[in-house]
């Protein structure tokens, strides 16, 4: 359960204040598949950083599973990210020269999970993300783009987070591979009830979600629920 209220984020460059987010507020329930959409410069990246506990808001509150994250220190935020959030990045960010299995279990290293448990959970996550066991001991430079992004999804799944944040996950993939990756998110949402937030600027990508939140100039301009696809098509 995500609850943000009156979130404002101000960047100060020299003497000029820039408001990246202005009074943003919404609630995302467990098991929702939400796309946050907006053009570049709209403030969606800033919003993603706050939702992902990478950054804190200048004002406003952010409750994740009932805990207020708006006033936590760096290390406390790291703990939240470790326990509750899984990231999927546009540029994958796998460790080079490291096997698929070790990449997938990396978050568990920081969560102090035992070696046996890590191995078991990383395998499960890789299966969930749709990767064949034949690739588990390959290094990331031996994989295709789609396979790499599925390893990254497995890495986001492995700590069993409350929330998976995907930042332009198809940005570096061709359309066909992108479809497969988005299909993976849909399947995880439908079959395993994972809460997924997809940040994108592409309408076709956003359409895979059940709900779309439009951001423009730091404000939520539209928030469409169950009938997102239909509304987008009509525009």
């Amino acid at each position: 359960m995500i609850e943000i209220k009156n979130i404002t984020k101000t960047y100060r460059t020299g003497d000029v204040d820039f408001q990246a987010l202005k009074n943003v507020g919404f609630t995302i329930k467990d098991g929702e598949f939400v796309a946050i959409m907006g053009p570049s410069g709209s403030g969606k990246s800033t919003l993603m950083h706050i939702l992902g506990a990478l950054d804190t808001a200048t004002s406003g509150t952010y409750f994740l599973d009932g805990r207020d994250l708006s006033k936590l220190s760096d290390d406390e935020l790291a703990e939240i990210r470790c326990d509750k959030i899984g990231f999927v990045f546009q540029s994958f960010n796998l460790l080079p020269r490291t096997t698929v299995l070790r990449n997938a279990m990396l978050p568990l290293v920081y969560a102090q999970v035992s070696h046996e448990e890590r191995d078991k959970r990383a395998r499960e996550a890789l299966f969930s993300a749709g990767l064949d066991e034949g690739h588990f001991y390959h290094k990331s430079n031996q994989l295709s783009g789609g396979q790499i992004q599925r390893v990254a999804i497995a890495r986001a799944l492995v700590n069993n987070p409350s929330l998976i944040l995907a930042d332009e996950p198809t940005g570096n993939l061709d359309t066909k591979t992108g479809e497969i990756v988005l299909g993976t998110f849909q399947r995880l949402n439908e079959e395993q009830g994972k809460t997924i937030i997809l940040i994108t600027h592409e309408r076709e990508v956003a359409e895979h979600a059940d709900r779309i939140i439009f951001i423009r100039d730091g404000e939520v301009v539209e928030d469409h629920g169950q009938h997102a696809k239909r509304i987008i098509n009509r525009k």
Partner: peptide
């Protein structure tokens, strides 16, 4: 790599 490690929960 450091950014990634921090994002997935590494502390200082």
């Amino acid at each position: 790599e450091i950014g990634l490690r921090k994002a997935i929960g590494a502390k200082r």
